[in-house]
Amino acid sequence: MKKILSILLVLTVISCKNSTETSGKLKVVTTTTMVTDLVKNIGGDLIEIEGLMGAGVDPHLYKASEGDVSKLFQADVIFYNGLHLEGKLVEVFEKMEAQQKKTVALGDFLNKKELIASEYFASNYDPHVWFNIQFFKQFAEKVTQVLSEEDPINAEAYKTNNATFQKKLDALEEEVKATIATLPKEKRILVTAHDAFNYFGNEYGFVVVGLQGISTATEAGVQDVQRLSEFIITNKVKAIFIESSVPRRTIEALQQAVLSKNHEVVIGGSLYSDALGDANSVEGTYIGMFTSNVNIIVNALR
């Protein structure tokens, strides 16, 4: 980290120009794939955008490379999830703020009274807020506001793009509710690799249990596996789920623990939790990811 932060000082000396002076477009850097997709929907071709994280990348564990620091320094605006999701980047963001960079932690603008508190996580809030579509809509409003302020010439276009995206999110919400309504309430028990789906559970009436905690930086132990295996057996859970950004071995160990007690549980599929799918796939968008998750969950548990 010291080496990376020292690069900031060098970049400060050799580059004082605003990036828009060379490209003519607002230069934006984002962290997670969810935030990247969101900003693309609002900014469109009016901005230059670079996302630091790709498909399958775990933001809890992500560390900035020297190249990342250079990208961040050259940006006009930096958008990130916040709420300590990108925990290992916090010091870098603090340095960026000291350099008068426009950094926007989207989660900081949500009503804290509506967030899920956690005594075990550093931020005291569950950071997986994108699994509440209404929160994601608020993210879109904030991105629109910031882009409009930083690039007032294109403000109306950003607002138009946001209006279009808001309608798409409303349609997603209706589709999700309709699909979940086909799953009996007693079968709405979602067991996954880590606690990423609590906002989803609150919105759609699921009991959510993760093998690991809110952050994947915490390791699941033997007692965690045994405790959850008993829960699965007691509640006759039909399927459990791996996650695209978390090693599957933890859920496979849980499945074996259940099987060793002469009970059966299947792995219902892979869910997208902390990252979207491949960039060129349907699941590489927020709407595609959410739709895919819901279909996998409902089909496996039904």
Rank of each mutant, 00 (worst) to 15 (best):
M34E: 14
V92R: 00
A181P: 06
L183P: 02
T144C: 12
L228Q: 12
I287T: 13
V282F: 11
T12Q: 13
D37S: 04
F206T: 05
I47Y: 05
K177I: 09
L26G: 05
Q145N: 12
L8T: 04
G201Q: 07
Q212V: 05
L301S: 10
T179W: 07
I232F: 03
A98F: 06
Q145C: 01
F79N: 03
V13S: 12
L8C: 02
K17W: 11
F206L: 03
Q99T: 02
N124E: 14
E97Q: 10
N162Y: 15
L190F: 15
K88T: 06
A140F: 05
V176L: 13
G107L: 07
I232W: 01
S123F: 10
A279K: 15
F139E: 05
V191S: 05
T20Q: 13
L11C: 01
A181G: 07
E97V: 04
I180H: 12
L61R: 11
A163H: 14
E174P: 02
V222G: 01
K261Q: 15
E119L: 10
L11G: 09
K177P: 03
K168S: 13
N202E: 12
E114H: 10
A275G: 04
I214G: 02
T182I: 10
S273K: 02
E252D: 11
Q145E: 15
Y125S: 09
E186D: 15
A279T: 14
F139Y: 15
T33C: 04
V92W: 00
H128F: 09
T179P: 02
G44M: 07
A55C: 08
L85W: 09
S23H: 08
A171P: 08
Q138N: 09
I153G: 07
V10E: 12
G44E: 07
S281V: 05
Q145Y: 14
N295Q: 15
H128D: 08
E97P: 00
I233R: 01
T20H: 10
T218H: 11
K185D: 13
F79M: 02
T36P: 00
E48D: 14
N111P: 00
A193N: 03
E230L: 11
A220C: 06
K168W: 05
I116W: 04
G87S: 11
V209F: 02
N81T: 11
V57H: 00
L26A: 01
V225G: 01
G24H: 04
S6M: 05
K71M: 04
P59M: 08
T216K: 07
